[in-house]
């Protein structure tokens, strides 16, 4: 008998909630009014009809992040860069030591599943980066997705696996720097081109402006690449993913090794 009461009350309450949310507007009015600010971004993100105002990318968020407020993102990238420089400075001279440990990692089951997942993880990260100007995502998100690989390596296969796979701090720093240099090159290219040709060009200029005809190519054989956005996304992908690699590699250093080497430094 009590079961029936429970059953009936569940059915009744779920039905009442479904009815209230669907027909009585219990969740309040849906926000159908788009604010003017949002409308402006939506109208101008991809708009070949207004070339001096548009970004030529249908992804409004990436348009904002790398063009409308591009300099802000540039400084965010620099802040991230400085944070990694600081981490490298703190850990300077401390290397991986494989003495006395086997580096067994987790069980066979976790290791085999993870080694199949890592190539898939790389494919997904590259897809997020390569579509940053078309769909939600972009360089930072893709970099964070790829950085998962470094955590998986450290946790599942042990931190010693970096050395066995040829992933070194120096290489990660080099790849991150290559990404940052590419960003700098893309940012400075319109200015350099302008100086060389006598045409006015702006820092981070993506597409034509009222007083400047310079523009990065928006299409390559019919494929939309949205000017600077694809290059900035791909470069940011490298800078962020290998920046995170550096951080996670440093964090996975053995505490006793770090203490020992820091201790030596304090004594001198």
């Amino acid at each position: 008998m009590r079961r029936h009461i429970v059953l009936v009350s569940i059915v009744l309450s779920v039905s009442a909630l479904a009815y209230a949310t669907t027909y009585l507007g219990a969740l309040g009015p849906l926000g159908f009014d788009t604010r003017l600010l949002a409308k402006l971004f939506l109208v101008y993100a991809y708009n070949p009809g207004a070339p001096e105002l548009t970004v030529m990318s249908p992804e409004a968020v990436t348009s904002i992040v790398w063009d409308f407020r591009g300099v802000d993102t540039l400084y965010e990238t620099v802040v991230f860069y400085m944070a990694i420089v600081a981490a490298l400075a703190i850990y300077r001279g401390i290397g991986y030591s494989s003495s006395g440990v086997r580096g067994a990692g987790l069980s066979l089951i976790v290791r085999v599943v993870t080694k199949i997942l890592i190539p898939m993880n790389v494919a997904i990260a590259v897809s997020i980066a390569a579509h940053g100007h078309l769909t939600p995502g972009g360089g930072f998100q893709a970099g964070a997705a790829l950085a998962v690989v470094s955590v998986l390596l450290a946790v599942v296969f042990s931190a010693l696996s970096f050395g066995k796979l040829g992933v070194s701090l120096a290489r990660a720093v080099a790849l991150r720097s290559a990404g940052l240099l590419t960003i700098a090159a893309v940012v400075l290219a319109p200015v350099a081109f302008g100086v060389a040709t006598g045409i006015r060009g702006f820092l981070m200029q993506n597409y034509v402006k009222l007083d400047s005809p310079l523009a990065f190519p928006t299409h390559v054989s019919g494929q939309l690449i949205s000017g600077t956005l694809i290059w900035l996304n791909l470069a940011e992908f490298f800078a962020v993913s290998f920046g995170f690699f550096v951080i996670f590699m440093l964090l996975s250093l053995r505490e006793d090794v770090v203490r020992e080497q820091l201790g030596e430094e304090h004594e001198h």
Binding site: P119, M120, A123, I124, V126, S127, A130, H131, Q223
Partner: peptide, 25 residues
């Protein structure tokens, strides 16, 4: 495996994705 994951995750078979997917694979 990598090509299939790339194409399915991207949800696109445009020449752009076929080229990037193949290089990545």
């Amino acid at each position: 495996l990598v090509f299939a994951v790339y194409i399915v995750f991207s949800g696109s078979v445009s020449p752009y994705d076929l080229v990037i997917g193949a290089l990545l694979a």
